[in-house]
Simulated scan of single mutants.
Amino acid sequence: MSNSSCVLSTTELSFSYGGRKTVDRANLQLQAGTLTALVGPNGAGKSTLLHLLEGRLKPSQGSINCSKQIGLMPQRAAIDWSFPITAQDMVQLGTPSNCNTTSANHPNQLLERVGMGAMGSRRLSHLSGGQQQRILLARALMQQTEILLLDEPCSAIDPPTREHLLRVMREQAESGQTLLVSSHDWGSALNDYDQVVVMDGQILANGTPDAVREKLSDMTCMMGSHCCG
């Protein structure tokens, strides 16, 4: 895909916390309408990078070039699921008042899309981990942003749920939304995504799954032999 379709780029983006540089001179480009996996080990800086791109954190150095709206689906662990609201309330929580709600992005329709159509009135505390992941995705879709960042949306869930969420994300990319998805699942990243970004503080590889697979096989992998498989 040509650079003319680039919707977000970073130049030498860095972030330091407690004297440690968690993101180190990251140069990244996201192309419009692509589904991109962001993979790396624990502590690689994936969540920090997503928070920098979304604006929750300010970089120590470098720049972000983006003129599009950016939304973020946080990790499930970052949410207080004892909050006394329903699944439908959660989908609408934080939605801008000027958000154009249509039949396609009505909370009930979004719950249906993620396989939670019968759970709208259920309290958050009564949902399983996989159900909570689906609620967070529906909430992220409700924001209608042109770029969507998802932090470990498929972690600790069963394979059928993971496949369902991947299908929803693929549909969003095919509709023109740009998605960047952090993950520990190397197999899925190299088989189910348009682009793959490999990160361990720095960005070690960035390209199509085939190009990344070839690059990893040619380099000394410092993140464990499984990442080169």
Rank of each mutant, 00 (worst) to 15 (best):
M1K: 09
N3C: 02
C6V: 15
V7W: 02
S9R: 11
S14D: 09
F15Q: 14
S16P: 03
G18A: 01
G18R: 13
V23W: 02
D24E: 04
A26G: 04
N27L: 08
Q29H: 15
Q31F: 15
A32R: 15
T34Y: 04
T34A: 01
L38R: 08
N42L: 03
G43D: 04
A44V: 10
G45V: 10
S47P: 02
R56Q: 10
S63V: 10
Q69E: 15
I70G: 01
I70N: 04
Q75C: 11
Q75V: 03
W81C: 06
F83L: 14
D89E: 06
Q92H: 03
T95D: 10
C99G: 01
N100D: 14
T102G: 06
A104D: 14
H106A: 12
P107F: 03
L110I: 14
L111G: 03
E112S: 09
R113Q: 13
M116S: 00
M116D: 00
M119C: 14
S125T: 14
L127Q: 04
G129H: 02
Q133M: 06
L137Y: 01
L137D: 00
A138Q: 05
Q143D: 12
Q144C: 12
L150Q: 05
P153T: 14
A156Q: 10
T161Y: 03
R167H: 15
R167M: 12
R170T: 13
Q172E: 15
A173D: 12
A173Q: 07
S175L: 13
G176E: 10
T178C: 06
L179N: 09
S182A: 06
H184F: 09
W186C: 08
D192K: 11
D194S: 04
D194N: 11
Q195F: 12
M199I: 06
G201Q: 10
I203F: 02
L204Y: 05
T208F: 02
P209Q: 04
D210E: 15
L216H: 08
S217D: 00
M219L: 13
M219R: 13
T220A: 08
M222H: 12
G224V: 00
C227S: 00
C228M: 07
G229E: 11
